[in-house]
Structure formats: structure tokens, C-alpha cells
Design a binder for these strands. Sequence first.
DNA 1: CATCACTACTATATTTTTTATAGTAACTAT
DNA 2: ATAGTTACTATAAAAAATATAGTAGTGATG
Lengths: 103, 103
Amino acid sequence: MKLTCPIEKATSFLGSKWTLEIIYFLQEPRRFCELQELMGGINPATLTQRLKLLEAEGIVNREVIPDAQRHVKYELTPKGKDLVAVYRELSMWVSHWYPEEAQ
Amino acid sequence: MKLTCPIEKATSFLGSKWTLEIIYFLQEPRRFCELQELMGGINPATLTQRLKLLEAEGIVNREVIPDAQRHVKYELTPKGKDLVAVYRELSMWVSHWYPEEAQ
DNA sequence: CATCACTACTATATTTTTTATAGTAACTAT
DNA sequence: ATAGTTACTATAAAAAATATAGTAGTGATG
């Protein structure tokens, strides 16, 4: 007897390690190696997997920059940017309940 | 060169499978087996682990009801209830971007 | 122009986490 | 007396994450 939970869809991808942090850092466009550095411990295979998942979900856009080096830029789609309100609330919660750690 | 991310603390426990859903369903007090039923696929060992973690984090309160059966009730602490604002934003995001699935 | 570095990954083996399944101890209902 | 409920724990297997190394394409340095 499983009730439908309106956030079930969201938790299917947000509720896995790193995803919340990836989206947070993508509030400005980043390259793959930038994300790696920002999120110290992430494994490149995991990062790749998450970015593909978020891309498939329409939250993240992957763009190959047409320079000689063919750098890759990741950025939030409008759907992804729309999650900023969620982060605003979450940040407020953290700064309220963990005042010493927020900044 | 790891920048501090204000939601890093939050992601350390929210960013793992089931946690977001558990807190969602605890918007009203529940017993262990209720949570199990509500979240179809969760493993009891995982549920136990998550509830302990959330209890240690001060988000969930565990209470043994002093009836003969010694039922156990889980509920959100004020800190946990304060996450409701986050869920409100997340629910709005889901109902906007997944209109067919929300409800 | 050979060597080294950087970028954006992929491959493999190991470790960690999650799961399926079964079991337990205390009570309750028939 | 037997079966059912509740709140878990135990164990082994499956799935996911990690460390580590490697690759292919460029670019920079001597």
C-alpha cells in the first residue's frame, strides 16, 4: 500500500550522493575538472554518471565549447535554475541550525 | 582547493537514498512499520540506519510508547519540522516540471 | 620536435552501501 | 496453542561508489 509522495520523483535523483552538491555548484557554468576540484572527493566516474543523469532529466545542459581543446561546459537549464528556490530554503535552514558551519 | 558549500552539511545526510522521503512522510508521526509500508521498497536495516542518523542529527525523535506492546513512534523535532519550507519549494518545483506526476 | 601538462573522460578492481531474505523477542488475538 | 503484529537484527548477495590507472586530443616548454 504505497502512497504517492509528490516529491518521490525529485528524490529519485536528488536523493543520491553528490547530486545536491553538483547542482549547487552549477549555479554558475562549470567545466568537468572545475566540478571535480570544487567537490574534493568525487570520483570522475561518479561525476560523469550524475551529470548524464541530470542531463537526461533536463536539469543540466552539456555543451562542447568549439575551441581547439573542445572544452566541455555544464550549466543549469531553466528547469535546473528553478531549483534555486529549494537551495535558498535549504541554505536558510543550514545557517539557522548550523550557524557555525555556514560560511 | 575545496570551497565551502553552505549546503554541504545538509547534503551529508539529505543526499542519500530514502532520507528525503523519510522526512517527508514524518510530517506526521509514524511508527516503524508504517514507514516501511509507505515507502514500499525500503529495507528495514536501511530504515533503521537512516532513522538513527536523523535522530543523531536532531531531526527526528524516537519515542517508545509506554503501552503493553511498546510501540515506537518517530516524529520530527522542531529542527526537522523547519525543513518543511524546503519541501514546500521542492513540491512546487515538482508540480511545475512534472505536472502529471504530482498527485 | 620530444616531453610534459591539461582536459574530459573511461576501465578495472576493491570497498562500501543497499538489498533480499530470514530470524528474534515480546506481546496480542483466536 | 498457534498464528499474527511490531520493531527490529543478522547474513549473504547485489549494486553503487571509490581509488587508481589509463586514453585521446590538445597546448606549452625547452
